[in-house]
C-alpha cells in the first residue's frame, strides 16, 4: 500500500499546501530527469562494491535479515550544528532523519521519502502528534483504488494502517502542510524513494522519535533531488 499525505481537507483551504502543490508539480515537470539520477546504494562487503539498492533488493535483504541494512538503523552519530537539541533534520537524499542531541551528537534514523517528483523542502514544525493515527486516503486514490475506497471516511489506527504506530503532523505556522512523519507497514522500504512526500520510518523508530520530540519542535527538510527549491 502506498502512503500519501493525509488529504482529509482540500488544498484550497490551506495556502501553504497550495504552494507546496505548485512546487511539487514544478518539481515533477522540471526535475524528473535529474531526480531519476538519484539511486540508493549499499556496500556489498562480499564483493567489496557499491550496489544499487532498489525495491527488489530491499525486500530480499529484509526477508533474509528481518531488518534493514545497518546504515539505516537507529544510531547516535556526530552532528555539527548550531541547531538546538530537539530539532529534527530530514535529509531525503541520504534517507536519514536526525534528531539533534546535546554535545555535537544526533540520533540518526533511516527513512523512506517521496518518490520522483514528490520531494519537497522547507522549515516547518511539529504541530501535533498521534498514536496509532487514522489514515484518510486522498480523493484520487479513493477513485482509482478499491482497497482505498473502502476507507474513504478514514481507516482506524492499527497494525495494518499505512501510517503505522505514530504520526508527527508537520505544520507551517498554524497551517497543516498535509505532510507527516509516520510509521509504516512496509519496513523494507526504508532507504528508498517510495512515498508521496511523507517521511516514513520503521514503527520502532517512530515510537522512539515520538517519545523524544516536543510539540512545536523545528523540522528542517533539506531539498531532495536536484536544484529546484519550492519550500512550504
Amino acid at each position: 500500500m502506498t502512503d500519501t499525505p493525509d488529504t482529509k481537507y482540500p488544498d484550497r483551504s490551506r495556502p501553504g499546501a497550495r504552494r507546496l502543490g505548485i512546487g511539487l508539480i514544478a518539481a515533477a515537470l522540471c526535475l524528473g530527469p535529474l531526480a531519476a539520477l538519484a539511486q540508493t546504494q549499499i556496500y556489498d562487503a562480499r564483493t567489496k562494491k557499491w550496489v544499487d539498492y532498489d525495491k527488489k533488493k530491499a525486500r530480499q535483504y529484509f526477508a533474509r535479515n528481518n531488518q534493514v541494512p545497518e546504515a539505516f538503523r537507529r544510531q547516535a552519530v556526530p552532528f555539527r550544528t548550531a541547531e538546538k537539541p530537539g530539532t529534527i533534520i530530514i535529509d531525503g537524499n541520504q534517507h536519514f532523519l536526525y534528531l539533534v542531541q546535546p554535545g555535537g551528537q544526533a540520533i540518526r534514523y533511516g527513512i523512506g521519502v517521496g518518490r520522483e517528483g514528490f520531494g519537497w523542502a522547507g522549515i516547518v514544525r511539529v504541530g501535533r502528534t498521534a498514536e496509532w493515527p487514522t489514515w484518510t486516503p486522498p480523493a484520487e486514490m479513493v477513485a482509482r483504488d478499491p482497497n482505498a475506497a473502502k476507507w474513504a471516511a478514514g481507516m482506524p489506527g492499527g497494525p495494518d494502517n499505512p501510517l503505522g504506530a505514530r504520526a508527527l503532523y508537520l505544520y507551517e505556522g498554524d497551517q497543516d502542510t498535509i505532510y507527516r512523519i509516520h510509521g509504516t507497514v512496509e519496513p523494507w522500504t526504508i532507504g528508498l524513494d517510495v512515498s508521496s512526500g511523507c517521511i516514513r520510518m520503521n514503527n520502532d523508530d517512530i515510537v522512539d522519535l515520538h517519545s523524544r520530540v516536543e510539540i512545536g519542535a523545528k523540522v528542517i527538510v533539506l531539498m531532495q533531488g536536484a536544484a529546484l527549491y519550492k519550500g512550504v
Binding site: 538519484a38 541494512p69 535529509d91 534517507h95 544526533a106 533539506l222
Partner: peptide, 17 residues
C-alpha cells in the same frame, strides 16, 4: 553505519546546515 549512500553526492546534512 556508512555502508549506504546515494548516487547523488550531496553534502552531509550537518555541513549544509
Amino acid at each position: 553505519e556508512d555502508m549506504a549512500r546515494t548516487s547523488l553526492q550531496t553534502a552531509p546534512a550537518d555541513l549544509q546546515l
